[in-house]
Every structure is written in C-alpha cells, then in structure tokens.
C-alpha cells in the first residue's frame, strides 16, 4: 500500500508551476489544488463528473504553447475512460493527466472504486495509446513525474497511489462563470475574454 499523502503530492507537483494550467476534477483533487492557493490558472470542477480529461484536451488544443495538467481522482477518471482513447487519437504534446488514486469515492463515504478491485488506470491509458504512462507509489518517484508535466513530449498519464485520507476541505471558488472568465483573461487577455 502506498504511504503517499495527497496534499504533499499535489504541493510537490505544483511547486514552481509557472504558467502551467491546472484543471482539477471534482471533489478532493479540487480541494488539494485549492490548498496550494487559488490561482487564475486553476479551473476547478464542482460537477461534470467524467469530463475533466476532455476539458484538459480542449485547453491543450486551444493553447498549444501552454502545458495543461488535469489533476483528478480515480472515480472521476473511471467515469470518463473513453476520453483516454479520444485523447490518444489527438496526442497533443502539452497535455498531462495525473490521477490521485485512493481506490475510494472519498466525497460520498469512502465506497470502494473499481481500482480497489484491480482495475489499472495506467494500463488502460497505455492500451489506449497514450505514450508516457507511469504508476507512482513512492515519494522518490515524484520528481520524474513532475518533470513530465513541464515537458512537451506527448500526452503523459500517471496514476499516483495515495492514502485514503479524509482531510479538511479547502474549497475553491464555486462560481463557474467567474472561474471561466478569470482563466480566459489570463490565457487570452481581458479584452478578448469578453468576446465569444
């Protein structure tokens, strides 16, 4: 069993993030990102379960000069497995997906997800054709993962096995229109952000 703490993992991955765009899946990953500070380059989902990776693909295609990180949970990723096949067909060089896998639906009472019964998200991503795939269980493997996020060598996908902790929530803003306009202004400028 992994001994990694999710908040430590996310803090390490986002340290010195520069202009990295971060899409956070609903629930604990969004709180982990918020715990590192609320940033204009964060887009945290409060719903749309199963959609985080595809939001990341849209951003990666629209902003080819930026690195885009999707940070989500195993339950959220399991609901969007098909998107891994879709992402592999597009293979943008700047999209990175990290699944924080506690093998639980943490928000709803710690019910087991399919990864607890052996479903291997990294193997699924690899089988879909995603080129750079890793599973992280030890703290000393995080440096290599962090390096992946700031390269532009093709889609990367990582599963980080974490402890099933029930931590205090750190809430990101909930107003979707605010989050949208704030990120658009950062990416395309305040004036263009007001257009369609």
């Amino acid at each position: 069993m992994s001994m990694l703490h999710r908040r430590d993992v996310v803090r390490d991955l986002l340290r010195g993030r520069g202009d990295l765009v971060v899409v956070a899946g609903l629930g604990a990953p969004a709180y982990d990102v918020a715990a590192c500070g609320d940033e204009a380059l964060n887009f945290s989902l409060w719903g749309a379960m199963g959609g985080a990776a595809m939001v990341g693909l849209g951003l990666a295609l629209a902003q080819p000069e930026r690195n885009v990180l999707v940070l989500t949970g195993d339950g959220e990723m399991l609901m969007g497995l098909g998107s891994l096949a879709t992402i592999a067909t597009q293979h943008p060089p700047n999209l990175h997906i990290v699944v924080l896998d506690n093998e639980r639906y943490g928000e709803t009472g710690q019910q087991a997800t399919h990864t607890s019964a052996g479903a291997d998200l990294a193997a699924i991503a690899l089988a879909c054709g995603i080129p750079h795939v890793r599973t992280v269980r030890q703290a000393d493997e995080l440096v290599a993962l962090q390096n992946d996020l700031y390269r532009r060598a093709g889609v990367s996908f990582a599963v980080v096995k974490i402890l099933p902790e029930d931590l205090p929530r750190v809430l990101p803003p909930r107003d979707g229109a605010f989050l949208t306009q704030r990120l658009r202004a950062e990416l395309i400028g305040a004036e263009r952000a007001l257009e369609g």
């Binding site: 899409v23 199963g50 990776a53 849209g58 395309i188």
Partner: peptide
C-alpha cells in the same frame, strides 16, 4: 467537455 476546454482557451 472538449468544447468547454476550447472555450477556456
């Protein structure tokens, strides 16, 4: 979700 990401970008 793809269109949402594109719009954000």
């Amino acid at each position: 979700a793809l269109a949402a990401g594109a719009f954000l970008g």
